[in-house]
Design a protein around this nucleic acid. Sequence first.
DNA 1: GCGACAG
DNA 2: ATCTTGTCGC
Length: 219
Amino acid sequence: MIDDQTQAAEELQQRLRQTVIVHDELPTEIRTVAGVDVAYEQNSNRLVAAVAVLDVASLQVIRIASYHGEATFPYIPGLFSFRELPAVLSALDQLPVKPDLLVCDGQGLAHPRRFGLACHLGVVTGIATIGCAKTRLIGEYEPLGADRGAYQSLVDEGAVVGRALRTQTGKNPVFVSVGHKVSLETATDWILRLTPTYRLPETTRAADQAVKALLRAPR
DNA sequence: GCGACAG
DNA sequence: ATCTTGTCGC
């Protein structure tokens, strides 16, 4: 017996998945790339969402936008976007200019209904997005090379839904998938460009750092 | 029925 | 996600 909330959420995913653009349709000139993340407070529903905008050339943070609020949806694998999207959208609203590309801390098409957080955020904002998760949700993949840049297709039900990509030699891979308006090939290139030193993209590292600092600071 | 299961 | 110190390894 799945409740109405779950039922409605899954139906919305089935409907919105039809609007996802899986080929390159990003701005001609990508000058800014942003990372988004959310942190939660223990023993409460308080949360903080942040968007960290980086300059593509220097990979330096040029702006941080945030939002403090309450979690309104539980964490359910497969329905993750319904928990984080509202707060993330509120944080994005604080930005005077939209970033050219968004990197999400979660899946894009590598989702049971092919509509993870990256796809959801992309279609509702119209911004090009990439999903880059630390762990896998669905799919299988063959062993990949140990060198940075090595990758293997993430396959689910016979379809390539993303890639297990090694961003740092000797470290565990990240899971890259199409979000919206970015092909898997281009998404892979961007993730490698955003991981010159660490396993995770500088964008998600900056957003993660911002969100944790804001959670501890007073409001 | 038994696991698996983004953050 | 969050609770958490030291510690093993390069």
